[in-house]
Design a protein around this nucleic acid. Structure first.
Length: 280
DNA sequence: CGTACACCCTGGCCGC
DNA sequence: TGCGGCCAGGGTGTAC
């Protein structure tokens, strides 16, 4: 599930729970997720205090009191669940895919669950973060000031691959995934098949606010679903949004009178949903 | 360099 | 009920 809005939602849900708290215990049930966890991962975390929880691209960054940063990526199927004592409901933190359990000093447990194990977790010194291979090639944050029409135009110019594929490239702009790329292109009326180069200029100018809007609205929706989840099972990161085109193959295009059905095509082995009348 | 594709892994769903 | 095929929100390594 996690694209930028979902990761941001997890970040906001996690911050009040763990900021200022100490890892009393860390249970690591697997050596490897997408990459091996660091040697002595649990030992290095135990006793450390969490100073702050931040997000960069689709990564969660837990800054610790020893100058290290706990980096978490949720991959495709990663989830984080907060279990407040006394535990209620079916969540135990002992599920088949509960790979890491962080026990805080107030007995709240933070559970990392990831069936497909495309997620990752590692520890990086704060000073080495920006130059680290995971982070050094990342493009600008789409909700930040560095992301604008001129910047996007420059990044798209000369690129011959489809705009859909190009926007998934985290070197161009971070945070977009398959859903929100489809949704942003739909809103902007830009065909996913158009070359990136042909979007440079006016179309890029038009696209930027749609990217910002679709992400901001999803964060809002996440915030409200987060409130709904409080007191439920504590799970962060899973909520259903209303998507205009994503997953709606065959349904009527919702945004105009074109009377055409939403189409599904495959680009770079991933589904793209769009309206061929509205998006040119 | 940019681009295309296989691949990592599990589970859910659909048709037979 | 079982099985094969296909699909899934991400990212990387390899080959051209």
């Amino acid at each position: 599930m996690p694209e930028l809005p979902e990761v941001e939602t997890v970040c906001r849900g996690l911050a009040p729970t763990v900021e200022g708290r100490v890892f009393a215990d860390v249970v690591q049930r697997r050596k490897t997720l997408r990459i091996p966890l660091p040697e002595n991962f649990a030992g290095r975390l135990k006793g450390r205090r969490v100073l702050s929880v931040r997000r960069r691209a689709k990564y969660l960054l837990l800054h610790l009191d020893n100058g290290e940063v706990l980096v978490i990526h949720l991959g495709m199927s990663g989830r984080i669940t907060i279990l407040e004592p006394p535990d209620q409901g079916g969540e135990s933190g002992n599920g088949k895919h509960d790979h890491v359990v962080f026990q805080m000093d107030d007995n709240v447990r933070v559970v990392f669950t990831d069936p497909r194990r495309f997620g990752l977790m590692t520890l990086i010194g704060e000073e080495a973060l920006a130059s680290h291979p995971l982070f050094c090639h990342l493009g600008p944050e789409p909700l930040g000031n560095d992301f604008n029409g001129d910047m996007l135009s420059d990044a798209l110019r000369g690129r011959r691959s489809p705009i859909k594929t190009t926007l998934l490239d985290q070197k161009v702009v971070v945070g977009l995934g398959n859903i929100y790329v489809c949704e942003a292109l739909y809103r902007a009326g830009i065909s996913p098949r158009r070359t990136a180069a042909s979007v440079a200029g006016k179309r890029a100018e038009r696209l930027v606010p749609h990217i910002r809007d679709v992400l901001s609205e999803a964060i809002e929706a996440g915030g409200s679903s987060l409130r709904d989840y409080k007191g439920a099972d504590g799970e962060l990161g899973y909520f259903q949004n209303a998507h205009a085109v994503y997953g709606r193959e065959g349904e009527p295009c919702p945004g105009c009178d074109c009377d055409r059905a939403v189409q599904r095509i495959v680009q770079s082995n991933r589904s793209t949903f769009f309206c061929s009348a509205r998006q040119r």
